[in-house]
């Protein structure tokens, strides 16, 4: 049965090398390989790979532009990076052999399989880390764009009602981190549990529909995380008094 916590394969000083961390390194490798390949083969008339990357980049840039307007150039790298990283991490967990190739530990009824690789996004350390980056980047961009005074006016005011609203805003910022991290973690972990359960019931053909479902879940979850980050950034980069305009833009 899949545990909440990732399994530790070895320790490098204070750093526990978990199977999810190994998967993270694998995801890094895939991304770096893609970037390296593109760097080497980039040309005016694009090849198949470059064409796909260009289509995806342009689509996501246009999507960001439709929401963020003039702040697109600042928000787009975060949006795209979160999406790519989480998508590859989610889908990598569906590769045959992931979560099923490993070594056994314990004995008797305690004996269980420790896989060498496990989907990185099924580790709360990663999802929480990504959420914290999203939060810090959102607030840093907000201060950078609208200024410290305008930024603080969102949370602190001499008006008691606005002060209360500001307090709710601070709480909402904390809940954003929790919701972002646990949504991604929960969905991917649940998917892994479902796949493991189905595979244990009947190993052939039967898990395929569930795997296809997990492909969609992986795509949707990565898109949700990236989109929410983009929307939060867009809202916080709009001056406090122009909040309604930002909401209208988002609604569009």
């Amino acid at each position: 049965m899949t545990e909440f916590a990732p399994e530790i394969l070895l320790r490098l000083g204070p750093l526990p090398v978990t199977n999810t961390l190994v998967n993270t390194i694998f995801v890094d490798g895939v991304i770096f390989a893609g970037v390296w390949y593109l760097q080497k083969h980039i040309q005016t008339i694009p090849g198949v790979f470059q064409n796909i990357v260009e289509i995806v980049t342009e689509t996501f840039y246009d999507l960001t532009e439709s929401v963020a307007g003039k702040n697109t150039a600042k928000i787009f790298p975060y949006f795209m990076s979160f999406f790519l990283f989480i998508l590859i991490a989610n889908w990598s967990g569906l590769i045959p052999g992931f979560s099923s190739v490993g070594f056994f530990v314990g004995s008797g009824s305690e004996r269980h399989l420790v896989p060498f690789l496990r989907s990185a996004t099924s580790d709360l350390n990663l999802t929480l880390g990504l959420s914290l980056i999203s939060l810090v980047a959102t607030h840093a961009l907000s201060i950078n764009t609208i200024g410290l005074k305008e930024y603080l006016s969102r949370y602190f005011s001499l008006n008691p009602i606005n002060l209360f609203v500001g307090l709710l805003e601070i709480i909402s910022e904390i809940t954003k981190v929790i919701s972002l991290s646990f949504r991604l973690f929960g969905n991917i972990l649940a998917g892994e549990v479902v796949l493991a359960t189905i595979a244990s019931l009947f190993a052939f053909l039967f898990p395929i529909p569930f795997m296809l479902l997990e492909v969609i879940v992986g795509l949707v979850q990565s898109l949700i995380f990236a989109m929410l980050t983009m929307v939060f950034m867009s809202i916080l980069m709009t001056p406090h008094h122009g909040g309604h305009e930002a909401e209208e833009v988002i609604a569009k």
Partner: peptide, 27 residues
Amino acid sequence: FGLNPVLLAAQVINFLIVFYVLKRFLY
């Protein structure tokens, strides 16, 4: 949930490196 501050920091640093590489060499 297996939360570990060192692992969390490692994941954060890892993503920041990926973010830099993507921003600098892809986007």
